[in-house]
Nucleic acid binder design. Structure first.
Lengths: 224, 224
DNA sequence: TTGTTATGATAGTACCGCTATTATATTTGC
DNA sequence: GCAAATATAATAGCGGTACTATCATAACAA
């Protein structure tokens, strides 16, 4: 799988950055360093000053890549959705049965990322952790409509649409495919967080991937 | 219903505040003003300085009630869960049938609050809007474990536990009652936000409360 | 009316978010 | 190999945020 993914770079909507971080060494250090810092200390405690110190650069240099730290978070989430969609496609491309396609899709949307892979400067395990705890901050704010118009959430919409399509093939009468998919994506993030920090809001059983099992079961029951 | 709720005050865990805002006029102005400002401009743009100006008081006075703005958000969310649980109990207390209890509970957890009620200084419609867009910020941060130990999330846990109990009565074998309930609570918030701002992540149909219908159907199908 | 408590007024500090300017590398084209 | 173009670094500064501290005054209760 590594060889399949390691020879191209994932596309992120250019409205998100001032200068594409993929095009320079500093850009890659910015992405790598920000993932380390946000994962370690949380997005709220993250500043460009701290990032500059971390990667031995300066605030002003970082500001040439991203307008502000919020745009950087948008970049990380967009990259993540593009990355996840490429995995999704790779995993269902040769599968005939639609139900099997759907099952695999649910697993990919809800599983915890446990192995780092193909992109040298991006640690996908840490990025997945960041998505779980911080991704809702990328759209739950007052500027969401402006950023949405600029295309900041196309990656998220795209993966939701792809899986919703599979549902429609299986059950053309089902009324809420998009709600169902975004519910399990957001739900999986929340449940992983709850299991770590607020366990009474969730249920967990040893030796099971409870989150993934729960949502897989849910989708099949709900679409009938 | 007004008369039922208007004669007592809702309990919020004292670890959240330095001084109980229910015990003074200034305290009530702080709560009322913060709801207005956060609803209008978002929690990220909210500061104690702006609140002080809004209610004709001072930063230092507000700091005597709350350690910081995050604690104030915790207060609002805790109050909301206590308020919602009191509504829940009121609405199912004389209902015999467990399935009917559950249906009513789902409606209460997922519906949009459309009428302001009993507590003079708290606008419940605006508070519901705040919960939809800001409540995840009350726990999705690095201090969640400390605050959890202090009891900051007992209200949320309590309402989840109450509804999970009903599910267990209906289907004692169901493995994931808490996951299911917290999924529909968070899901309903997200879907309401998506329908307003990122509609392609959701589905909506005129003259229906799509969010509520979707989750009501989901719960019944999932628990079998 | 006297003490107690609540609120207001003011000042100050460290950090954040961001802009601007100038200097120094590094890369690219000839 | 050198000049021009571009990228990065260094430094300064400004207005705002998130507090903390102190002192003055208002309200209220014994």
């Amino acid at each position: 799988m590594d060889s399949f993914f390691s020879h191209f770079t994932l596309k992120v909507n250019p409205s998100i950055y001032l200068k594409d971080p993929e095009t320079s060494k500093l850009g890659k250090r910015i992405i790598e360093g920000s993932i380390n810092l946000i994962d370690a200390f949380g997005f709220d405690n993250f500043t460009f000053k701290k990032l500059a110190d971390e990667i031995d650069s300066t605030e002003s240099s970082i500001y040439r890549y991203f307008e502000n730290k919020h745009k950087l978070l948008l970049y990380l989430t967009s990259w993540y959705w593009a990355w996840l969609e490429s995995h999704l496609l790779y995993n269902i491309i040769n599968v005939e049965d639609n139900k099997e396609q759907l099952k695999r899709a649910i697993r990919i949307l809800t599983k915890k990322v446990e192995e780092d892979g193909s992109f040298s400067h991006i640690n996908e395990i840490k990025l997945n952790q960041i998505i779980i705890t911080e991704s809702s901050k990328s759209y739950m704010h007052k500027d969401v409509d402006v950023e949405n118009k600029e295309g900041a959430f196309l990656g998220y919409k795209s993966i939701v649409a792809k899986v919703a399509e599979i549902i429609i093939v299986i059950n053309p009468k089902y009324k809420y495919p998009n709600m169902l998919i975004s519910t399990i994506i957001e739900g999986a993030h929340h449940q992983r967080f709850f299991q770590d920090h607020l366990p009474r809001l969730s249920n967990n059983y040893k030796d099971e991937d409870t989150v993934s099992d729960f949502y897989a079961e849910m989708v099949l029951k709900v679409i009938g």
